[in-house]
Write a protein that binds this DNA or RNA. Structure first.
Lengths: 332, 332
DNA sequence: CTGAAAGCGCTAACAC
DNA sequence: GTGTTAGCGCTTTCAG
């Protein structure tokens, strides 16, 4: 084991300077004579010195690491967000400590605490929901936190978001021009977004277009292919002729379920889904969808976080990004 | 800013014991009298003491963090692998430092080095390819590294893998029972797996079934929907009546491209794809596919890594996991 | 079972 | 410009 790793002290000795000088060179501090710098660099090269980031973190109280908490990697929605985060993090030279928050209860809190223990410089939390316990943790810490894609009534915590209510409103309004009975198909209604934002936008759109609201048109499901396929028949039997689906994967399931039973879209049913992920382009007809700027949400969230970590001035810490509607094959 | 974080020293003082004892309590060291432990725990609770993992890492030389390097988060293939890694990491209480290796040249090496600098206890590298430069880095370090889903001729580095050659052989053999002209559709042939393993298995299957090999049946493409759609026409015109496609997304594109032009599967063309990701179940007909145990690869890789990190005995450090064929709608 | 003390490798005043 | 000197918060011998 020739792994007696070389330290800043070894470099200093070999170069005939002090540790402080080596540190300056390593950190690009300009207060070093060019000749000295060159000499030190040479030794660093020769000895193949690699600074220990842990020691540096302890001494400087900054780890250049940010924590990212998300519900599930296996989800194109969050993967897109992550990509935005990753690109900006790279740009600002932050590494990413990643963790998933799903699983047993309070996993989110323990994950959050574990990240604080590792002294991350900031945390981005992705997810539809945020528990009360976690909210309290966020308030307790001084570590900057940005919520991305997470709805929150109070605006005390920095966030980057989508206006779900307005998006649903637009989508349902579009459908209401031609349909009487329009379904709202969501995930668990106990989740804030499904039960609140979406429902609000949906009801408002119905009202503004003088369409009747009925609980029979609300379908609570899960974000899986299978759930969609199973729901299809029931959906059609309910008499609705159009639907807004809160998740792309679920929408694909519904589309397939309907088609497997011989129905045609958009003739028999108009469909608008939620995220315009690649899923919507993989099926035929392609699914019309709201397009949220997923990548941008991640990128903007990370950018916001860097500002907070560097104590820069922030004009607005609750950002709402615009969306658009993509009309493809499942709408007329 | 009431953030003068409480240290182990504060706890020791308040509890009237030494730092060492607090450390023992925190680390579950049994050599502490029950009464003392209780007293210390109480103070920890009262002061809301949270150990600083960075300091701990510096002192103990273990960070309980593993690095995971992958090409792209936006890829169901790697997302599945990551899930396996994540679950096992969680089980062994390791956190994950995640980084993507795509982008400019030698990004893989700089990412790798950056992880070493952060003193990760081990690294898992996911990806089809591995550069020579990175290979050298891996050899230089004492930090355990496991390659997952990465082909490598020499077996010096621990790895968990798929037998691509055999899988392709089986798939093509199956098609060869009914077809004369069978295409091989891959990503860039410069990549080891595409240009070597797949090609070998493909040729062997053709030979064993006395089917002619022709370069005209080899299609080099990219792993995107669009590439597949664009390839469809050309594929059909080439005269082949069956194809093995090395990537699911690409396969979906081809399926759609063919169907958009009025062809029917499997009548006009039999298709077998590579990874049996959810994509293959989202389209109609569902795509027949090789099923690699993606989750398991990740899980086994992480398990292997834990063994290496804990210096446990390892029977075989080059693991090959079995695959199976899933016959769905694009084969007869 | 518990305490004292020596670092882990680096940064950050503060002198010179 | 450069060196000196304290720590950062914790683990870990080594005594007792």
């Amino acid at each position: 084991m020739e792994k007696q790793s070389v330290t800043i002290y070894d470099v200093a000795e070999q170069a005939g300077v002090s540790m402080a000088t080596v540190s300056r060179v390593v950190n690009g501090n300009p207060n070093v004579k060019a000749a000295t710098r060159k000499k030190v660099m040479k030794v660093i090269e020769d000895l193949d010195y690699r600074p220990n980031a842990v020691a540096r973190g302890l001494a400087s109280k900054r780890t250049t690491t940010v924590g990212v908490i998300l519900p599930d990697i296996n989800n194109a929605f969050f993967a897109s967000l992550s990509t935005g985060i990753n690109d900006i993090a790279l740009m600002y030279h932050y590494d990413i400590l990643l963790a998933t928050a799903e699983g047993e209860k309070d996993r989110d809190v323990s994950v959050f605490q574990s990240m604080l223990a590792k002294q991350v410089d900031g945390i981005i939390y992705l997810g539809n929901e945020i528990s009360l316990a976690l909210r309290q943790e966020i308030e307790r810490t001084n570590t900057p936190v940005v919520l991305a894609g997470t709805q929150l009534e109070d605006t005390s915590c920095a966030s980057v978001n989508i206006d779900h209510e307005a998006a649903v409103y637009d989508a349902v309004s579009y459908l209401a021009e031609r349909h009487e009975k329009i379904a709202l198909i969501t995930g668990p209604l106990t989740e804030y977004i499904n039960g609140h934002d979406l429902l609000l936008g949906y009801k408002k759109a119905l009202k503004d277009h003088e369409r009747a609201y009925s609980e029979a048109y609300i379908f609570e499901s899960h974000y899986t292919l299978k759930a969609g396929e199973q729901l299809a028949e029931r959906l059609h039997n309910s008499g609705v002729t159009a639907a807004f689906v809160a998740d792309d994967l679920l929408a694909v399931g519904i589309l397939n379920g309907l088609q497997d039973q011989g129905y045609h879209l958009p003739e028999d049913m108009e469909l608008i889904s939620a995220d315009n992920t690649i899923y919507t382009d993989m099926v035929r007809p392609k699914i019309s969808s709201i397009q949220h700027p997923l990548y941008d949400i991640g990128a903007v969230a990370m950018r916001l976080l860097t500002k907070m970590m560097h104590n820069e001035e922030i004009e607005d810490k609750n950002i709402i990004l615009p969306y658009s509607l993509r009309f493809k094959g499942t709408t007329k």
